[in-house]
Nucleic acid binder design. Structure first.
Lengths: 202, 202, 202, 202
DNA sequence: GATGAATGAGTTTTCATTCAT
DNA sequence: GATGAATGAAAACTCATTCAT
């Protein structure tokens, strides 16, 4: 929103969105390298060349699709999480939402968990930027708040962020690649329990 | 494991190993798609065509390289872990070794954390096989043992496996992509503390 | 010359001229193949599509631009040359004007000397027409007159035309490509001297 | 000859030459931009990709073809011209050879006169190098020698070079584009006469 | 078995041209 | 007439794979 230098008409915007939607679909199913621009174009009901009116190249289309996705997800999360009173509740809510979103949209889960990393030099191209940064730093802020609020003990926020994001990411990957063969909700609850109470005998 | 149909002479075996070694090197540095067979061949000091005497295709070379790697790592781990007496010690040792191995060989860390996933349809082609499966199931067995031994509480072993592997995987990815800018050892200790004791106020 | 089938209003004519002017500019700087219609349109302050209301295609635009240019140049030359009394003076004046025009407008020199030839099949498409024909035949007529007037000896007019045009053309090309590094005027005087007196020892 | 870093086998050399020959043929008939690599490959009886084993890209193929051509022509010229005793004879011989070579190989004449200039940024890419330089400086040296030998009067050698090369170049262009409709030999004699004696009445 | 020259399928991207508004 | 968004044909180039030597 407001990222484009040129103002786009409603019609153009919807065309751009159609392309992004198609791109996520195709990237999710085929991965970056096997995804063909012509396939995305067909799915979006536009000509191949039209894609290049809105995006500089294939790589840029992937990044744009990703950016829009993360932004949308964060907007949705922020508004829902804001309703929670305590930091711990917000943190718990975040995990619920994270799981919920991807349960409803497995293609997006797959896209974020796997295909995104297939972009050439994804990490090399964005060494400091790291496109997931915003999402990750959002997690860290929730953790810091919860510590301040004294609802979780004073642990290293970065360490917990790594645990939360890494666990979620891999959980999603497993669930995606195993064709949703297990209950994401169940698994989530068990994981939250472990992170909450630890593994030690009381 | 009877993987090779034909018995290979020592000379051939060393040639095959040279290719695998070169493949890991090149895949690690360039990723699957940007890695060139000719580059691997040059590094292994063989002709391009020779690679096809030992491997069916590029994909197969990746998988073979990966298999060999995981196997080597597990062999090393098993022998060292066997010396530990309790399951909990073995589990702790595993995490130490996991971090230690990748600290010493960042290229391999990068290979496993990132490049491996760039294989086209990696997960689709090997849905049941899942190349990480052996490694992951090794973790799960360690956990089950520790529970039996009553040194950790009776939690869902799959859930903890997801936490352990996911956290480790993401930690590695971050460390690799951020050019080893933070201490892996330090972070590991903090993470282990959280997983051991949980995040709740005592 | 009745080139345009439809009568154009003044407004349209100025629009057409603006396009031609922009076309010469862009063709001169980028050459035929690298010149973009959209660039010409922007420079002429019209929409891309508008160009196709006045010209059939890119090739046609080049030819039209060229035609206009040659016509303008010849009109200017004729009026100035008409003031000279003898054929030899007219001939000398022509060479002066030729050099003068391109000295003042190097982009046009470049256009005529180099870019014009980059049109696909320029010579195949217009075998008899030869777009330079008018300009060249003007030279030849000046020569024939000078011979009749007995101010130059009775030589083959076509041969001298080839010498004059070829020498001028190459001189221009050299001067254009060498970024005007030498004095066109100086060189012209030396060339005229040689053509006038020959190379033989007296 | 000896330009390539890697030594090529006879077989490879003949393949490379076949490609160059085909390239000159195709470039001559279609011009640089309309010439298709696939067409050149077909004519040379090799696969498209094979061309890229010997040349970096299309532009490079054009330049290589050109270089080889000029070199071959100069070698032939030098050996034949060396037999002439006086500088003036050598100079005259040069013009004879120049015309003779292109009379026998019109495609090459066309290539050098027209298509060569269609390479993108031909002059911009080789501002100082100017690939025709060697040929042109050869002409200039012949002229300087003739002046020293006192067989032509002491004129500006650069100016005469421009006249000779420019005239020859345009003569060739005319002859090529007009499908050899006039006698090159005849025209040459007339031109030489004019340059020798000048245009003035004795 | 080993070689590496040769192959040719495959895909992004450009941009002249069109046509609905 | 004018616009400019949309079109889609076209082609250079790469590189995994093959196979004659």
């Amino acid at each position: 929103m407001g990222k484009n230098k040129n103002i786009l008409s409603d019609k153009q915007l919807s065309k751009k969105n159609a392309i992004i939607k198609a791109a996520i679909e195709v990237f999710s199913h085929n991965g970056f390298h096997k995804a063909k621009i012509s396939h995305i174009a067909k799915l979006a009901n536009v000509a191949d060349g039209t894609i290049y009116l809105y995006f500089n190249n294939k790589e840029n289309l992937l990044v744009s699709a990703f950016d829009g996705l993360i932004e949308d997800i964060l907007i949705e999360m922020r508004s829902k999480i804001a309703l929670e009173k305590t930091a711990l509740d917000r943190f718990t809510k975040f995990i619920d939402l994270h799981v919920g979103i991807f349960t409803k949209q497995p293609a997006i889960a797959r896209f974020l968990a796997i295909e995104l990393r297939q972009s050439p030099d994804f990490y090399d191209l964005y060494p400091s930027y790291n496109p997931l940064k915003e999402y990750i730093s959002y997690i860290e802020r929730l953790i810091i708040d919860a510590i301040k609020e004294n609802s979780i003990r004073s642990i290293d926020s970065k360490a917990l962020t790594v645990i939360i994001f890494g666990t979620m990411d891999f959980l999603l990957t497993e669930w995606s690649t195993k064709k949703q063969s297990f209950s994401l909700e169940d698994m989530k609850d068990k994981i939250v329990d472990i992170i909450r109470w630890g593994i030690r005998i009381k």
